[in-house]
């Protein structure tokens, strides 16, 4: 499935919704969205991954880029990542840098 990434920033919550297969060819699209969101200086970054089916190392690199691009006090949430992607995050250690949630939980994301 072709990769899509859409983003918006509302009340300081930056949200990027990812779908399809995030490979090397698709990574620049994702990166563009990260930069768009970062420009708005949100206090949270939420990555909606329910429909993301695959992530290659280029995709992981954009995640790391996002972590470094955001201010240190910006928490990053990964929402609804499917098992293979969650495993990739764990095996490469990136899960230490983010908070993983099953579903979008406003109580956790918006109020913490």
């Amino acid at each position: 499935m072709a990769f899509t990434a859409t983003s918006d920033v509302t009340n300081g919550i930056g949200k990027i919704t990812l779908a399809g297969e995030l490979d090397a060819a698709a990574a620049p699209t994702f990166r563009t969205e990260v930069e768009k969101v970062a420009a708005e200086q949100p206090r949270r970054l939420v990555l909606m991954m329910q429909d993301l089916e695959y992530m290659a190392s280029a995709g992981l690199r954009v995640l790391i880029y996002a972590r470094q691009r955001m201010a240190q006090n910006v928490d990053i949430f990964v929402v609804g990542a499917q098992e293979p992607i969650r495993e990739t995050l764990e095996k490469t250690g990136f899960h230490h840098s983010v908070t993983q949630l099953e579903t979008y939980d406003p109580a956790v994301i918006e109020n913490t």
Partner: peptide
């Protein structure tokens, strides 16, 4: 590597060393 199917063994080794 657990991630060799994705060709990510380099990251996995580096993550281990960092840890």
């Amino acid at each position: 590597a657990a991630t060799s199917r994705f060709g990510m063994q380099v990251d996995e080794v580096k993550t281990l060393i960092k840890e």
